[in-house]
């Protein structure tokens, strides 16, 4: 039960970090970690079918898709884009 509490807190913390980090690459890597831990949660909830699918799809395939998309969409580096939206100067890439 302690394990479940730690896992639940870690999931929420990871989600918070991945959704608020200014580094796009870091966000994607955190998302893959999130998917793997979620697979653990499925095992705890006695859903091994979903755990298998989540490990292969949620962490693996989605991760590959996101990493690939990041490399294509922001090839130079990450554009800081944290909320609150528009409180800072516009990102340099947005001007051309």
């Amino acid at each position: 039960m302690i394990f479940d509490h730690v896992l639940a807190l870690t999931l929420v913390g990871l989600a918070w970090r991945l959704l608020s980090t200014s580094h796009l690459f870091k966000a994607v890597v955190l998302f893959i970690t999130f998917g793997l831990l979620l697979a653990l949660a499925w095992v705890r909830l006695e859903a091994p079918d979903i755990a298998l699918a989540e490990a292969a799809i949620g962490a693996g395939l989605t991760g590959a898709l996101l990493l690939d998309a990041r490399a294509r969409l922001e090839p130079r580096d990450d554009v800081p884009d944290i909320a609150p939206a528009g409180s800072g100067p516009p990102a340099p890439d947005a001007s051309h």
Binding site: D49, L52, I57, G60, L61
Partner: peptide, 12 residues
């Protein structure tokens, strides 16, 4: 546990 979706995901 297993089946078409998991197998399809591994093939993918």
């Amino acid at each position: 546990p297993g089946g078409a979706f998991q197998a399809g995901a591994v093939l993918g």
